[in-house]
Amino acid sequence: MSKYRIEIRAQSGLRSVVQISWLCGLLLSIWSWKVDVITYQLLLQILGSLMIIGFGGFWLVTHRHAQRPLTFLLSESGKLTQMPDSGIQWQVSSDSKLVGPFVYLQAHDRFNHQQRMTNWLAKDQFIETDFRRLCRVICRCQRANNMNPV
């Protein structure tokens, strides 16, 4: 069974675009209210907008700082081992999803199944070959689960 070294970069342009779009949607929903439905509506809309902009800006700034990339060893059977060795070996779950340029990675501890790791990852956080390998492994784990239902 071969193992691949997968590197996940911390920063993602796609993820930032989705987050900014989400914030714009929230702002639009606040400003699409009918006029004068609530007393002090304009004040509430301004305060809500400032809170969304403040929280969103804080979130984007604090999560954009450079972090070291995460490095894993990934086997074809879905076994993940973090490098340098953290002591926990993860198994890619069949609940992981492929959604366009995003991967919802869900893994559980191979031994006690108590700990779970869930993460939304964007395609631009990977090297192209690493992204394809991860997608192949997720599809393989999903097929294996469909053949052997619990």
Rank of each mutant, 00 (worst) to 15 (best):
S29V: 06
F58D: 09
V37E: 15
K3S: 15
L47R: 01
L74G: 04
S77R: 14
H63F: 08
R140Q: 12
S12Q: 05
R64E: 05
T39F: 11
I38A: 11
I6P: 05
M1E: 14
S86R: 07
Y4I: 08
Q11K: 13
M147E: 10
C24G: 01
S12I: 06
L60D: 01
G57W: 11
L98N: 12
F102I: 01
M51C: 13
W33E: 13
Y40K: 05
K3I: 14
C135K: 15
L47F: 08
I46K: 03
D109E: 11
Q67A: 08
L121I: 04
V150F: 09
Q41C: 04
Y4E: 15
Q41A: 05
C135N: 13
I52G: 03
V61P: 00
I20C: 09
W90T: 02
D130T: 06
D130P: 03
Y104S: 06
D95G: 06
V17F: 13
R133S: 09
L23P: 00
V37Q: 14
W59S: 10
F131N: 07
V35A: 10
C135D: 02
I138L: 08
I88H: 06
S77M: 11
R68S: 11
L43W: 09
Q67D: 07
R133Q: 14
W33G: 14
L74A: 07
Q106D: 09
Q114R: 09
G56Y: 08
W120M: 04
S94I: 00
V99Q: 11
L14N: 09
N112G: 02
S49R: 06
T118Q: 13
P149W: 03
W59R: 07
F126S: 03
R5V: 13
S32P: 01
H113V: 07
L98I: 15
M83S: 07
R116N: 12
L73Y: 09
S86Y: 00
S2Y: 12
L44W: 15
Q115A: 10
I6L: 13
K123F: 12
I138T: 08
H63N: 15
Q125I: 04
I20E: 06
S16F: 01
I8C: 01
N112V: 05
M1F: 10
I127M: 05
T118F: 03
T71Q: 14
L47E: 01
L134Y: 00
Y40T: 04
W33D: 11
A144G: 05
M147V: 03
P84H: 08
M147R: 12
C135L: 01
R110N: 10
V99Y: 14
L42V: 12
V17S: 09
S96C: 08
L28G: 06
G57H: 03
R136D: 15
W90E: 03
L47N: 01
A10Y: 13
T71I: 15
E76T: 15
I52K: 03
P69C: 00
R9I: 00
Q91W: 03
N146P: 00
Y40H: 13
Q67G: 10
P84N: 07
F126E: 04
R68A: 12
W90S: 06
I30Q: 05
T62K: 14
